[in-house]
Structure formats: C-alpha cells, structure tokens
Computed example of a mutant assay.
Amino acid sequence: MEKEAAVNVMGGALAACSNDPKTGFFRDGHCNTCAEDHGSHTVCAIMTVEFLAYSKYVGNDLSTPLPAFFFPGLKAGDRWCLCATRFLQAAEEGCGPGVDLEATHRRALEVVPIKVLQAHAAPAST
C-alpha cells in the first residue's frame, strides 16, 4: 500500500490528526490515504456527543471500546480520521462533527464540498 501525497484540503502539508487515540487508515496519527482505503478515512473530525450518537444509530458505533482491535472507543473531544461519506451524511443530517482542515486530506474533496468542510471547521489550534 502506497500512501498518497500528504496534502490537506487547503493545499498545505497534512497535519497530524490524533496520536491519542492513534487514528488514520495507516494508524499513523494522520488522515493519510491510498488506493486500498475504500472508505476514504480522510476527514479529521472532532467528535461530539451528537455525532457519536448519530454514528451509532446509523450502524457505526465509534464509542464502544473493541480491545481485540486495539480500539479504545471514542468520546466527545477525541479526534478521528472519519470516512468522508459518513462525515457528509452526518453534516447533511445536521450533526456533523467539527473538522480540522489542516489535518483533513485533500482526497476528502472527492466526496465533501470544501464549503461543507469549512462550515464545520474548528478554530485553528495555536
């Protein structure tokens, strides 16, 4: 599996999304992607209670730990490389999580319009 260029949706270098919990298709802390990443885990999302409840409701429980898969379960405030289609679905339903644009891979733009990502943008970290 060869990683695509690590470029964010603004054309800059892809920033880290989260190392605690360790996220990303490659579990490298970044929302890197490749041809084998069919879910396009490219949106660096900041979890909210509303989004976690919505995700569980639509069949993707991100809050329950799965130790066998080294998955700690997510809570509000955690950052996670989310599938672009799930982000867009949640945004359209009015419960999209916050987004770190600097840590969101440009490939997310194949699914999510930049204006939708910008509408959910979290304040830039300092």
Rank of each mutant, 00 (worst) to 15 (best):
S40Q: 06
A90K: 04
G94N: 07
H30C: 07
L82G: 01
C83R: 03
T48E: 10
V112D: 05
Y54N: 11
L74D: 00
C83G: 00
E92K: 07
F69V: 08
V49Q: 14
H38K: 12
D28C: 09
V99W: 04
H30K: 13
D37P: 02
K56M: 15
G12K: 10
W80I: 05
V112H: 02
L62V: 12
C44S: 05
S63N: 13
P65Q: 10
Y57G: 14
R106V: 12
G24S: 14
I46N: 05
R79V: 07
T33L: 02
A108G: 03
E36T: 14
F69E: 13
C95D: 10
D78G: 01
L14R: 01
V112A: 05
E93Y: 06
T104D: 07
C31V: 05
F25W: 02
F51K: 01
K56C: 10
E50A: 06
F25D: 07
C83F: 01
L52Y: 02
Y54S: 09
P97A: 11
A53P: 00
A13E: 11
L82E: 08
D100S: 08
V43T: 05
M47Y: 03
E110L: 03
N32C: 10
C17N: 03
F25N: 02
C95V: 14
P65K: 13
R79P: 05
A76N: 14
R86G: 06
I46F: 04
L109W: 08
F70R: 15
E93W: 02
C81Y: 03
T42D: 04
T42A: 11
A76D: 14
E110W: 05
T42I: 04
L74K: 05
T85L: 06
I46D: 00
